[in-house]
């Protein structure tokens, strides 16, 4: 049975390669978790053991009770949450316009939004700092929300547009003939049908805002308004030997990201192709 031998070796290769990918994807995260539950006295003696002989949650207790991380976490939730809500509102409107209207300047708007996805945002760091500081928007969560909202609107617009494109135009035409104004049809017919898309957009934007680092570093210098990435990074440079605590904090940063990943998993393809370039 030549063909079954072939298919067996093929299957073996297939699963072998997949196992490699799964291990490669998960190992770093596993290691993060492992160090975070390794007590300090075992960290050096059991350097590369795969699981500590005596796991403990001491680092988590410390991080939660005696560090600023709960504050950073709260700041990040506020910033990412508000950004996600604002972006989704704004992008729902503009995405709808892109999907349903033909208007003068549409091509320019699409071009503009595509360009904003391509150009180095890092070049805006200095001018935004200069513009924001007299307005009191540096060292403030509001400032970060404004910046993140603007940065994510183009991508979210394309994403929402792709969801609206999936809903037949006939539906709101039927509603308009039934006696609804366009905005009413949008509200009562189209939006309810786009709810999964709205949820996915919220998830994508939340994740993006949650991981933003450079503008948070530049615009916020006082600890009270630091987001999680900034807090973690300054913790790393200050206490660079408390590995257990750093990794416990790292695991905490991972939790919301993983939750939102579950939420948006079904829409990954749409999300990635909508931005085309968005990480």
């Amino acid at each position: 049975m030549k063909s079954s031998a072939y298919s067996r070796s093929y299957r073996f290769l297939h699963y072998g390669l997949l196992a490699f990918y799964v291990i490669f994807a998960l190992f770093p995260l596993y290691w993060l978790l492992k160090v975070s539950v390794t007590p300090n006295d075992l960290l050096y003696s059991e350097g590369i053991r795969l699981w500590p002989s005596r796991p403990s949650l001491a680092h988590y207790t410390f991080v939660l009770a005696h560090s600023d991380f709960p504050l950073f976490f709260k700041n990040s939730v506020i910033v990412s949450g508000s950004t996600a809500v604002l972006v989704t509102l704004v992008a729902a409107l503009s995405g709808y316009a892109m999907s349903r209207f033909d208007f003068r300047g549409k091509m320019w708007l699409v071009g503009l939004m595509l360009v904003t996805q391509m150009f180095p945002l890092v070049m805006l760091v200095a001018p935004i700092f200069k513009l924001f500081s007299p307005l009191g928007l540096t060292n403030s969560l509001t400032g970060l929300v404004i910046v993140y909202t603007a940065f994510n609107v183009p991508f979210a617009t394309f994403l929402m547009q792709s969801f609206f494109d999936g809903i037949p135009k006939d539906l709101e035409e039927a509603a308009m003939i039934d006696g609804a104004s366009r905005f009413r049809a949008f509200q009562q017919i189209i939006l309810p049908l786009t709810l999964p898309g709205v949820a996915a957009t919220l998830g994508f934007v939340f994740t993006a805002a949650w991981s933003e680092l450079l503008f948070a570093l530049m615009l916020v210098s006082k600890a009270g308004a630091s987001t999680f990435p900034v807090g973690l990074l300054s913790f790393v440079s200050k206490f660079s030997v408390d590995f257990g605590q750093m990794m416990a904090a790292g695991v905490l940063a991972l939790i919301p990201a993983c939750l939102f990943f579950l939420l948006i998993q079904r829409y990954l393809v749409q999300g990635l192709t909508a931005g085309a370039v968005k990480g």
């Binding site: 037949p168 006939d170 539906l171 035409e173 039927a174 003939i177 309810p192 049908l193």
Partner: peptide, 13 residues
Amino acid sequence: IAMVFQSYALYPH
């Protein structure tokens, strides 16, 4: 006026 669409355009929700 009332209209019947080719796709029927019934509101799915």
